[in-house]
């Protein structure tokens, strides 16, 4: 499977995702944001970081970069797109995913491992997970507080477009297990066609027992499945 990782000035998880993809046997290429064409890809990853120093709003400037037009075209023709952390923020700024990511409710940058629950395991990104499986995945963000209007929230629930929700170790989804104030504890969502996933947690940081755990592995093996 061929993958491309888009690199912006200020991306800082681009190398991590490249290592994870290569470890999982993806044939990966890095693509600088000023490029105007994409290599042939089955998967495009928009990595985490602080593109353009989070100027204006997180992801706002990157969302208008040259390569993004190509990403939008690829997305519309069914290519799989994964946006992690800042990548999720960029996807909402481009309009590929609805809603937006606000400042964390407690106004603090949060960097810790949290539990998330697999809400929908019937997608290209999640078919190797069990439904309601609880994962421990790292989050590291200042703007992860997902917000959307009531119509879209209804659509997310009705059409099973919520990918992951923050929970506690026992799987309880409530205010106490919500690290950033995200609406309905949402940690990741799909677009309507489910070929685009945006998520705040970092699965690429969870692919090796030596440094963390392997809870992120199944996301990549789902894609290969």
């Amino acid at each position: 499977m061929k993958s491309s990782v888009i690199v912006f000035p200020g991306s800082n998880c681009d190398r991590d995702i490249a290592v994870a993809l290569e470890k999982m046997q993806f044939k990966n290429k890095m693509v600088w944001h000023k490029e105007t064409s994409l290599p042939k890809s089955d998967l495009i990853v928009i990595p985490g970081g602080f593109s353009y120093g989070d100027y204006l709003r997180s992801g706002a400037i990157a969302g208008k970069s040259l390569i993004i037009d190509e990403v939008v075209k690829a997305a519309n023709s069914g290519c799989l797109i994964l946006g992690i952390c800042n990548g999720f923020q960029i996807l909402t700024e481009t309009g590929l995913l609805k809603g937006t990511l606000l400042r964390n409710k407690n106004l603090k940058f949060i960097n810790r491992d949290v539990n998330i629950k697999v809400v929908n395991n019937n997608t290209k990104f999640s078919n190797k997970y069990k439904k309601d499986e609880i994962l421990k995945i790292n989050i590291a963000h200042n703007e992860g507080n997902y917000f959307t209007d009531t119509n879209h929230l209804e659509e997310l629930n009705k059409e099973d477009l919520i990918a992951f929700k923050y929970c506690d170790e026992a799987g309880n989804i409530n205010e106490n297990s919500n690290p950033n104030g995200s609406i309905e504890n949402i940690a990741g969502i799909y677009n309507q066609k489910k070929n685009i996933l945006g998520m705040m947690p970092h699965p690429e940081r969870m692919v090796d027992e030596i440094i963390s755990n392997k809870d992120g592995v199944n996301l990549f093996s789902s894609l290969l499945n």
Binding site: L56, R57, A60, K64, G99, T100, L102, F147, T148, D149
Partner: peptide
């Protein structure tokens, strides 16, 4: 187009 996120 850029300065404002009309959702919020």
């Amino acid at each position: 187009k850029l300065l404002v996120n009309l959702i919020i």
